[in-house]
Nucleic acid binder design. Sequence first.
DNA 1: AATAAAATTTAGACAAATCTAAAAATTTGT
DNA 2: ACAAATTTTTAGATTTGTCTAAATTTTATT
Lengths: 220, 220
Amino acid sequence: MTHSEENYLKGIYHLSKGGSVAVATNAIAAQMDTKPSSVTDMVKRLSEKGLVDYRKYQGVSLTESGNRQALKIIRKHRLWELFLVEKLDFKWDQVHEIAEQLEHIESEVLIDRLDALLEYPDYDPHGDPIPDKNGVFKTREKKLLSAMPVPSEGQFVGVKDSSATFLRFLDRHRIALGKKVSILEKEEFDKSMRIRLDGEAFRISHQIASNLYIKPNNAS
Amino acid sequence: MTHSEENYLKGIYHLSKGGSVAVATNAIAAQMDTKPSSVTDMVKRLSEKGLVDYRKYQGVSLTESGNRQALKIIRKHRLWELFLVEKLDFKWDQVHEIAEQLEHIESEVLIDRLDALLEYPDYDPHGDPIPDKNGVFKTREKKLLSAMPVPSEGQFVGVKDSSATFLRFLDRHRIALGKKVSILEKEEFDKSMRIRLDGEAFRISHQIASNLYIKPNNAS
DNA sequence: AATAAAATTTAGACAAATCTAAAAATTTGT
DNA sequence: ACAAATTTTTAGATTTGTCTAAATTTTATT
């Protein structure tokens, strides 16, 4: 498989939410930052290789085999991201671009060794689950902060937007995965929320709240 | 720069022994396992980018800029090889192919961090010097085992042939970099040699002796 | 120095991945 | 349901890196 083919599989996987939902040509083009005509071309190639199911004008979905490949690439990407943070002291906003390159390195052993070095981790630096050798990954209850009831409590477990800009914003506000958070109130008008973090209460916009995943406290 | 361009620069660097000696099209084709006509094509592209000096039918040499680039790629290759051996428990015969891929990852920071993690090493697992950030590397006195006087003593410091086959042969004979060796005798007829290693004497063929680098003992 | 051999380059072709512009199919709105 | 808008595909072109076969240049031989 070429790098480009791998990138398309990963893109289609994300758009179809890992499932077998059919994805539109235009959606793929947007995701891959390319033109719809290029997508049509590539999708035909992937279809010939048995990696996607494709019927003209009807959208694309991953085959069993395509799904397996996509999960392999995602596994590699997330392991490399964690490696960069854990072993090379990168910040969580600096790892994506490098992992985009590293995910295409071909070597099963390499990835297994990396997995071992990192002690078989379940989640990457952004809280996304890392598939194991067989493509199986942990799922956990999580809600967008914006969807949490008021009042309630929970813990940051992931980000929906993982752009460097957003991640650095979170750093500046001391918001980090693993931290406890209390949801204090929600403003009807602009959907902004007041939350308490590290004993300090402050307000965050809906934009922010709708890009942060929380694991709700069962007790609440 | 594309992967292919990088590979050509590296190939030309090796053939010209790091110097500015002109290299023949056919030699490059052999090194890169490709056709001479493909080399001509690529060399023209590299020439337009100012990475090589090229005059039709007269061979190719690296420019200042081309040399700098080549050293960067070699630095990356060797650091990754050492990383694989030191941190991921690979054997020295398993790292080349993976490093061939990893050497093309683009990120200055990544390589600097890797360099730091490995504590700024001078040599890779095959005894080849690792250029620093500025392309500067250590040189040390070394001779082919086949060129050592009889009797004499020294220490294994490198391999000329670093094919997996040869490296595994060395493993089976307990020959490893850093070990002391005594050269006992040399057979006129077939140039085979008797050497002592770990207190045990044995015979090795000229083929082997001419692919092993020794640092001679100054005292002898 | 002429010719044969070897090395190198050119010409033309191909596959991968992309693009633009135009055509075709599907979906939407009334 | 039918026209308009949108989406998707096709056709044809471009770039990179490669190839084969033919032409050209250089080198070696007599």
